[in-house]
């Protein structure tokens, strides 16, 4: 990295400036920068899944079949009383155990089953998750948790679609499914966008919790890089610099929030083209 800097710029920066750049572009720091990908993947994939679960939940909430409606209502109410961290820890572990149970039925012999004292039943049925698998699990849990928030938003937005339009569609002989997909869901986005923007911001902030799932994300890297170093062999000798790294993350997340807000404002303008406005 350092050799890419032209001489004139190097002279202008001086030795201290060059050393700083050298420090900030060493292998560990590059790994830190590239770990931003985990955050972004979790946010985007989690967001897509959240909209998917949100649509399912909202459709269930307004279903005519009572048990489906109950499930929809329980799903959307659970996030009210229980913190998202609990779900974030629970779902990956639950899915892991479920997979291990299936593997145990497939690979473990009856003797191993009867002799088993704990978990897993036998060695073949142990699933050690890699980072990518943890990331997928995290995305799935984000999808489930924030899908519940999104379901509320989408449900409200569906109710906000003018009833007259749906009745008109019915009068034209559209089937119920067609009305749901071509009129209600097609038109609800404008009403849902402000709420979905809020859910997105919540999700974005929740991506900081990835380190709880053994993913070396930006937070764990910040912790490692900032830890005091007294060995010159291990790089620059410095005291505890963790607060500097966390400050960077603090600003990083504020910037992400700013960019998201701009983007959603732009989407809102685009989505409300052709809508009658009162103001």
């Amino acid at each position: 990295m350092i050799e890419l800097i032209p001489d004139w710029l190097g002279n202008w920066l001086g030795q201290d400036g060059l050393d700083t750049i050298k420090y900030l572009t060493n292998g560990k720091h590059m790994a830190w920068y590239s770990s931003v990908k985990f955050t972004l993947i979790a946010a985007v994939l989690g967001g897509v899944l959240a909209v998917f679960f949100g649509l399912m939940g909202a459709a269930m909430k307004q279903s005519k079949i009572a048990p489906l409606r109950w499930i929809g209502n329980i799903y959307t109410t659970m996030v009210r009383g229980i913190p998202d961290v609990l779900f974030l820890l629970f779902f990956p572990l639950a899915l892991e155990q479920l997979a291990e149970l299936v593997m145990a039925y497939m690979y473990c012999s009856p003797e191993q089953w009867s002799n088993a004292t704990g978990w897993p039943v036998c060695r073949e049925a142990q699933w050690l998750l890699s980072t990518n698998e943890y990331l997928l699990m995290a995305c799935l849990s984000f999808g489930i948790v924030f899908g519940a928030f999104a379901a509320n938003v989408i449900y409200g937005a569906m109710q906000a679609v003018p009833k007259g339009q749906l009745e008109a569609a019915e009068a034209f002989g559209f089937t119920e499914k067609q009305i749901l997909w071509r009129f209600q869901i097609r038109q609800m986005w404008v009403y849902a966008l402000p709420g979905l923007s809020n859910v997105w911001l919540l999700l974005l902030k929740a991506t900081s919790l990835l380190s709880l799932l053994q993913i070396t994300d930006i937070v764990s890297w910040a912790d490692r890089l900032g830890a005091p170093n007294y060995l010159s062999m291990a790089g620059l000798v410095h005291p505890d610099w963790r607060w500097k790294y966390y400050l960077v993350l603090f600003i990083f997340y504020i910037l992400l929030t700013m960019i998201s807000e701009r983007f959603f404002a732009f989407l809102q303008v685009r989505a409300s083209r052709g809508m009658a406005r009162s103001n």
């Binding site: 902030k205 937070v219 607060w243 966390y246 603090f250 997340y253 504020i254 929030t257």
Partner: peptide, 21 residues
């Protein structure tokens, strides 16, 4: 804006490490 725009998780780490420093 700053406190609503950043995760509480980071805020905890940040303030604790500042206090530690």
């Amino acid at each position: 804006y700053a406190f609503r725009g950043s995760p509480l998780f980071i805020q905890f780490f940040m303030f604790y490490s500042i206090s530690l420093a």
